[in-house]
């Protein structure tokens, strides 16, 4: 084998392991998704979605990015209401999935076979079977449902509802709501700790993060965030040590110590951060800043904004797909 051939072989073997992830940002007012290279933190290209794209999630295998798209005209049911499947390798939309009306946020089941979607205007959660590409169950949850989170073991889906201040618990084995509990006013989003023992729920009007004992589906504490915090998006670090909260109209990110159950830091970002995503190693946090049309990148060790990336209009959600596939 020649030296050149050996070199090429090494690249092939090593390439995927070192490939940086890609960051996908939904822009609700410019009807597209901006794709960012996490290695350089530069925008690469935009994918047209049409409608009003908001919720965004990556499949467990990292090959598909799903985007919830609804009609920009409020409460008007239309063919625009669907979940789009973006093939990460092909860099294009490859499927439109039935999602019920006005889909906003959702979760992908661990086995990659189902989506659990909130329908804000209908007050329901839809379960979409990905093989059949259609809604196979519609579950009644609280009024104005919004946030959706899946437990790490794949068993529970938490659905928050803004008007009823509830979290409904869906058992993914039975496709049924098995429990509901109250949290502080206007719950927006939920996230689980990596070990699955705790869930964290933001309450925008309450200005708090509710801490939930997942075993009993019970609130055990409420953490007051900084003055003017309007907590919306939330993520937990891969080691479970930190919880990052987007403060919406507070224009900042709060860092919550998951052991002490208190906010320990605030990082100023762009205007009205909403969706959040962490790189798989937990080193960088991306925030979708809805009113400044950009994404802030935070170094989670230094707790400093290290880049501000212009995206489309009204950035809403962020998801990070591992970059391994792109190196093929």
């Amino acid at each position: 084998m020649t030296a050149r051939g050996l070199f090429a072989l090494c690249l092939l073997t090593v390439g995927p392991a070192f490939a940086a992830p890609f960051v996908y940002v939904t822009n609700e007012r410019s009807a597209n998704v901006t794709v960012i290279d996490a290695a350089t933190d530069k925008p690469l290209y935009n994918l047209h979605t049409g409608g009003r794209p908001r919720g965004i999630q990556v499949s467990a295998d990292g090959r598909t990015v799903y985007v919830a798209r609804s009609d920009p005209q409020f409460n008007k049911q239309s063919p625009l209401d669907s979940i789009l499947a973006i093939d990460v390798a092909k860099k294009r939309v490859t499927a439109h999935l039935d999602a019920g009306s006005d889909p906003e946020q959702f979760a992908v089941s661990r086995d990659g076979k189902r989506l659990f979607i909130t329908n804000e205007d209908a007050g329901t959660a839809s379960v979409t079977d990905l093989a059949q590409r259609k809604v196979t169950a519609t579950l009644v949850v609280g009024v104005e449902p919004e946030g959706v989170a899946l437990s790490p073991d794949g068993r529970w889906i938490y659905v928050t509802a803004e008007t009823s201040n509830t979290v409904s618990v869906i058992d993914t084995k039975r496709n049924e709501v098995v429990s509901s509990f109250l949290v502080d006013p206007r719950p927006r989003a939920a996230a689980f700790s990596p070990d699955g023992t705790r869930a964290w729920i933001t309450s925008e009007i309450g200005g708090t993060v509710s801490v939930v004992d997942v075993k009993h589906h019970e609130v055990i504490a409420a953490i007051d965030l900084a003055l003017r915090a309007k907590p919306v998006g939330i993520v937990v670090s891969p080691d479970g040590r930190w919880v990052y909260v987007a403060n919406g109209h507070g224009d900042s990110i709060s860092v919550v110590d998951a052991k002490k159950l208190e906010a320990v830091n605030v990082v100023r970002v762009g205007r009205r951060p909403w969706g959040l995503a962490l790189t798989p190693d937990g080193r960088k946090l991306y925030t979708a800043n809805g009113l400044s049309n950009d994404v802030s990148v935070i170094d989670t060790k230094a707790l400093k904004v290290i880049a501000t990336i212009p995206v489309g209009e009204g950035p809403w959600g962020v998801a990070i797909a591992p970059g391994a596939d792109s190196a093929k």
């Binding site: 007050g123 609280g142 009024v143 009823s164 509830t166 509990f181």
Partner: peptide, 10 residues
């Protein structure tokens, strides 16, 4: 009606 629905959930 909205509160009754929340109550049912609880």
């Amino acid at each position: 009606e909205e509160a009754a629905r929340t109550a049912e959930l609880l």
